[in-house]
Amino acid sequence: MSDSALPRYALAAPQRPWPGVLLAAAAWAAAGAAIRFWPDEAEYTRTLAPIVFGIAVALSLLAAIGPYLPERAAKVRFAAPWAVALAIALTLWEIVTAKTGYLPRPFFVPPQELMGVFIDDWAKLLECVAHSVILLASGYALGSSLGFLTGLALGWSKAVGYWGHPILRLIGPLPATAWLPIAFFMFPSSWSAAVFLIALASGLPVAILTWSGVSAVGGAYYDIARTLGGSPRFLVLKVTIPAAMPSVFVGLFMGLSASFAVLVVAEMMGVKAGLGWYLQWAQGWAAYGNMYAALGVMAVMCSTLVTLLFQVRGRLLAWQKGLLRW
């Protein structure tokens, strides 16, 4: 009998749960048991074990309903090996800190303490993220748009290239952080100084790579556009810019990494807000848990921004074959 001949409800016959996710649930349950029942070497908060058990329960539920999910959502099952690995990592971390004290306090913190930081201090961390993101976005937007226009002018105009090239060659290799002391007394506020530094750090690579992208545009493209009646404006907008875009994006990625570095340093040195400042402040109080928490948040923030840029690139450069997926 063929499938189509079966009555509809027969298709809903019970299906076996996802084995990989079931294994992950078991791993998390084991981690929870270790946290709950293996006595601590010192007294720690007890809230971690219930959360880990909760994750185990959620995973087993997912394993059960997984086979009924639509294919798009069902892709989550490929993360099962990671879920197992994370459970193992958490258990090991718990053992070398809270259970045995093999890694000394206060430099190393057990998971409980890190979680405590997020529970107690989430509002402040969130505020710091907001500060950092606004500062970074202001500097990066300013720097990359000025860098793009500079690169375009350098590549397009002989005169600009003549004057710009030596300047860029001299200033370009200088790390933006070297300007830090000067920037902080030249600008009216430490915030505007930081915006300047971040703009400088991101603008230089964008300018150089836009320039190199513009210079590399094949003459044949211009020949085509010119014989079809393209004005100089058309050539810039419809030939130069799209053709240089892959190179511009290399510059945008380099600029983004450079701006992260400058952001943290600027926040540590002068700006009294943001994750860099939080790190500095936590160090002053020897609050190592807070430092790890801030580092984690910073990693998530930077990774998210890089991912965003990858998505913009994926949209704009969909025409390129073999584009790296992030």
């Binding site: 094949g218 044949a220 020949d223 085509i224 014989t227 079809l228 053709a243 875009m245 450069l317 025409w319």
Partner: peptide, 14 residues
């Protein structure tokens, strides 16, 4: 006066 060049040179981004 329109030219069809020896090499097609289509714009890869279009």
């Amino acid at each position: 006066r329109v030219v069809v060049f020896q090499d097609p040179t289509l714009f890869p981004w279009r």
